[in-house]
Design a protein around this nucleic acid. Structure first.
Length: 439
RNA sequence: GAGCCAUUAGCUCAGUCGGCAGAGCACCGGACUUUUAAUCCGGGUGUCCCGCGUUCGAAUCGCGGAUGGCUCACCA
């Protein structure tokens, strides 16, 4: 490159003027380069224009590449054009923009002055691309299903409500694409996936944003075990491609994503960490045990609710290295197939890493009669005031009545996956424009 | 939704006991033809988050509110 003529454009990030010669740093999306400007090469007029420039202005230059006395590759500018004027001063060059409120609200400024922020979003794009390629290579078809739903199904969550004027009816923003994707299995697509936003009308935290991205995939003639294998393969594959290794560091903790990950039934995990054996109890026995152990559960809590509470309290905080928790109670898994040898439990799994649930999968319930009963149970909970209980979806039942092939399904929380792989402690660090209360 | 903490110049931050509102960077003027957190000289650009109160006097104390962060609760 040395001694070659070049044409570049970018934003001025710093200025060092020395009278009749000056240095400037120019930044574009590929990085920074130093400019050297002399009155001898630019002429009175060109150098005069340069002297009116501010940090933040976007300019285009032509010039010759050379190495300075201190060995820095630079461009000696022969011609210079102001392309865009910056009217507002940029944050300080040394400390950058730290105020998190401003960083999120004015992400454009954050991206200009904090280069590591840009790197996170480049990584996010690569992670999603890597995941997409992985699935397409394995014969999965990428599809798009409705985000405006008459029934918000596929998860237990409070939906956002919106209104369709022409039809004069309320609609829900989807909380999960699950039921649509399984209709596609009925229709004959054997491997489908969708990457997209879900919307949940719930609290926000370092791990929750009202709109978030998931990847759901469904494979006919597969089961939960197949889905666990694909889960660990996805994480290993993406980590290798984006981070360069299946061993990653998260907030100082070494995490080994190398497959296979251990499998542990939920009841066994609870027994291991709390000493309590919850297997085979009635609702009432389970509630009594919860009270004994100081776990608060609603008076109406089912066996499954109690198990979940025990799990959250005793087990979850300990799950740092990847592990699949399996065999969730049927009451908290209304779309999963029951275990053949224990109808109280389902053939379901959730992988945990750094105490987060990073995905959720199971052998899909394809028995329309059992599914209808499960929906009815959910409706009862709804009637008792549980706003997050599943809605009845009669069309989904009808689809199952045509016959859905046995299948495995998996949903991955993309934001959490990106947090993990970019060592980001807050979901807001991996969302370009996280939800904020308006100012 | 609850608790704790924060909010001062465009940005990063000081501000003591209640007594004239401060620094660095950025910006403006001047010097300087290989610097790189350039240097040197001069210039402070402000709704001290908002409101009410206490006081001779409030950035500072009290009450109420706004916004944000963290923790907890709910969830993925």
């Amino acid at each position: 490159m040395e001694d070659q003529e070049t044409v570049i454009a970018g934003r001025i990030m710093s200025l060092r003027t020395h009278g009749k010669a000056s240095f400037a740093d120019l930044m574009d999306s590929s990085g920074r380069i130093q400019l050297y400007l002399r009155i001898n090469t630019l002429g009175e007029e060109g150098y005069g224009l340069f002297q009116t420039l501010d940090i933040g202005d976007i300019i285009g230059v032509t010039g010759r590449v050379f190495k300075t006395r201190r060995g820095e590759i630079s461009v000696e500018v022969k011609d210079l054009k102001l392309l865009s004027k910056s009217l507002r001063p940029l944050p300080e060059k040394w400390h950058g923009l730290k105020d998190v409120d401003l960083r999120y609200r004015q992400r454009y400024v954050d991206l200009i002055v904090n280069p590591e922020v840009r790197d996170v979003f480049i990584a996010r794009s690569r992670i999603i691309q890597s995941l997409r390629n992985f699935l397409i290579e394995r014969g999965f078809l990428e599809v798009e299903t409705p985000m405006l739903n008459v029934i918000a199904g596929g998860a237990n969550a409070k939906p956002f409500v919106t209104h369709h004027n022409a039809l004069d009816m309320d609609l829900y923003l989807r909380i999960a694409p699950e039921l649509y994707l399984k209709r596609l299995l009925v229709g004959g697509f054997e491997r489908v996936f969708e990457i997209g936003k879900n919307f949940r009308n719930e609290g926000m935290s370092t791990k929750h944003n009202p709109e978030y991205t998931s990847c759901e995939l469904y494979q006919a003639y597969a089961d939960a075990e197949d889905m666990m294998r694909i889960t660990e393969e996805i994480f290993a594959h993406v980590a290798k491609e984006v981070v360069g290794s299946t061993k990653i560091t998260f907030q100082g903790e070494e995490i080994d994503l190398t497959p296979p990950w251990p499998r542990k039934p939920m009841l066994e995990a609870i027994k291991e960490y709390s000493g309590v054996d919850l297997s085979g109890l009635t609702d009432e026995e389970a509630r009594r045990l919860a009270k004994e152990k100081g776990i608060s559960v609603p008076a109406q809590a089912s066996y499954g609710n109690v198990v979940e509470e025990f799990f959250d309290a005793f087990v979850e905080p300990n799950l740092i290295q990847p592990v699949f928790i399996t065999d969730h109670p049927v009451e908290v898994s209304p779309l999963a197939k029951r275990k053949k040898d224990n109808p109280q439990l389902t053939d379901r799994f959730e992988p945990f890493i750094v105490t987060w649930e990073v995905a959720n999968g199971f052998t899909e319930l394809n028995d329309p009669i059992d599914q209808e009963q499960r929906f009815r149970k959910q409706m009862e909970q709804r009637d008792r005031g549980d706003e997050e209980a599943h809605m009845m979806d009669e069309d989904y039942i009808r689809a199952l009545e045509y016959g859905m092939p046995p299948a495995g399904g998996l949903g991955i929380g993309i934001d959490r996956m990106v947090m993990l792989l970019t060592d980001s402690p807050s979901i807001r660090d991996v969302l370009l424009f996280p939800h904020m209360r308006p100012r």
